[in-house]
Structure formats: C-alpha cells, structure tokens
C-alpha cells in the first residue's frame, strides 16, 4: 500500500486531522499551570495511589521513542504524521502533570523523580508494528485501553479525596479518548480502502497487543499486580475495548473470525519459533 500516491486517501486523512485539530484547539486544550487545582492535593492519599501515578509517568517517559519511532512509521501519510506531532505535545503534557503531582504532593522527591527518568532512559521503546496501518490499529486499541485505565483511576483518586489527581486523570482521559476516536476514524477510512487487509491488520494487532510499558518499566509486573483492581483484565478488555472498537468500526464479531484465526495461528507459530521472523 502506497498512500502517498493515493491523493483521495491523503485528502481524507488531512480532513480528519483538521477536524481533530480544530476540536482540540477550540474545546479540548488545557494548561498544566491554569487548569489543575494543585492546592487540592490530598497529602494523606495512599502510597498505592502514588505508585500508580509513578507507573503511568514512567510509561510516558518513553515519549521520545514513541514520537521518533511513531512519526517515522507514518511520515508518508500527511494527516496521520501531523496528528503524531500533536499527539506528542499532548502526551508530554500528561507526563509533566503526573510528574508535578508526584513532586508537589511530596510522594516523590526531585531526586527520586529524575533518578527514575535516568534509570528508564537506559532502555528504549521499539515499535511493535512496522506499517502505518498496523501502527494506526495499535494506537486505536492502546488509546482505548489507556482511556479505560485512566477512568478507573480517576474514581480511585476521587475515593481518596484527591481532587487534584482526579482532575489530572480527567483531563488525560479526555485526551486519550480523543486520540482513540481519531485512530478509529482513520481505521474506518482504511477499511473502506481495503477491508480484508485492514481486518487482517486489526486482528494481527489484537493478537500481538501489549501495553507500551511492558519490558521497560522496572518491576512492571509487580506494579501491575498492585494496580490490578483498576486495570484491564481479559473481561474488561473484551467489554470496554474489543467490543466497543468493533462496534464503532462497524465490524461484526463474525466478520473478524477468519482474520483472527490467521492472526492467532501466526502468533502461535511465532511463539514456537521466534527466530523465524
């Protein structure tokens, strides 16, 4: 697929991005300095809550990799690449808000915060998929999962009377669902262009999906265990991610079966013989 030569698709992508960008500029922009009630931090909020914030912030710290790798995969698609640039700005704000929360609440010192950054950047994130379409499908699923997680944590922050953190999660969740909608609308366009190929890519991404912090954030598994009650297990993934995404795209579960079967078989083959690919 060579989208650069497909002017009609390029125009559609551009229009989609402009629609997203206009809404972002007119209605969704927020400021770390003006829109977060820093005075409403609850210093008595639990360490568990802080650990969750730290984990989210740690995942966000790989932003340079997400931006560099992500934007180069989609650089031939004008609207999609410009979206990636805007996405990087919004995610950087998320990272700053979470980090500021940790330091202003006293849950982490500056030394701990920058020490964590130092430890994290010794590793780098590598994209799981190498085509623009697969990366778009990945973005769609990942942003939806992230949105679900932030919504759950917003409720936890509310339960612990931390209005500051609740507001941060609220603002981030709003951004994440906007990102997800953009990806979904792009995938809809790609389905119109090549339904069979796009279904195959959606299935491939679902079969090989993992959240970006896996293998990068220290003690990721134990952190996730502590966050499990407010995370995304299999049932939540099906209910809040898989089914809503398919519904939005106008894909029935039955239509996914052939592509899913192939993707699951390929995953099993890859797992049995990792050197094959």
């Amino acid at each position: 697929m060579k989208p650069t030569k497909n002017i009609a698709l390029q125009e559609k992508l551009y229009r989609q991005y402009m629609e997203f960008f206009e809404k972002a500029e007119r209605d969704r922009r927020w400021s770390v300095f003006d829109d977060i009630p820093w005075d409403d931090i609850n210093p008595e909020a639990s360490e568990e809550l802080a650990l969750c914030v730290e984990t989210f912030a740690a995942v966000e710290m790989f932003l340079p990799d997400y931006v560099a790798s992500g934007i180069n995969v989609v650089r031939d698609w004008f609207g999609r690449a410009w979206f990636q640039a805007n996405w990087g700005y919004e995610e950087s704000k998320h990272s700053i808000a979470l980090g500021e929360y940790l330091m202003r609440s006293g849950k982490r010192t500056k030394e701990q915060w920058f020490g964590l950054h130092h430890d994290l950047v010794q590793k780098s994130w590598q994209p799981l998929f190498d085509t623009p379409r697969r990366m778009t499908c990945y973005g769609m699923v990942q942003e939806m999962a992230t949105f679900v997680i932030y919504c759950k944590h917003r409720e936890l922050a509310k339960q612990q009377d931390d209005n500051c953190l609740r507001t941060i999660y609220d603002l981030i969740a709003r951004d994440e669902i906007a990102h997800c909608r953009f990806y979904q609308d792009v995938v809809k366009m790609l389905l119109e262009e090549d339904r069979e190929g796009t279904l195959a890519d959606i299935a491939h991404v679902l079969a090989n999906f993992q959240m970006p912090g896996v293998g990068l954030v220290p003690d990721y598994d134990s952190r996730i265990l502590k966050m499990r009650d407010a995370g995304v297990d299999r049932d939540v993934f099906i209910r809040k991610v898989y089914l809503p995404v398919l519904k939005y795209l106008g894909i029935s579960r039955r239509e996914m079966l052939s592509a899913q079967r192939v993707a699951i078989e390929q995953r099993a083959a890859q797992s049995a013989n990792p050197a094959a690919e």
Partner: peptide, 21 residues
C-alpha cells in the same frame, strides 16, 4: 481475550446462533 472471542465465535458459527454482546 482474542482466543476467547475466537472460541465463542467458532461455537456460535457451528451452532448457527449468536450470543448478544
């Protein structure tokens, strides 16, 4: 999750019925 949805879908197809989402 994906295998679960595949198993459900394959059983539905074999039985020619559908469980509501």
């Amino acid at each position: 999750s994906l295998s679960m949805m595949q198993i459900v879908g394959d059983m539905e197809t074999e039985l020619d019925l559908q469980i509501p989402d």
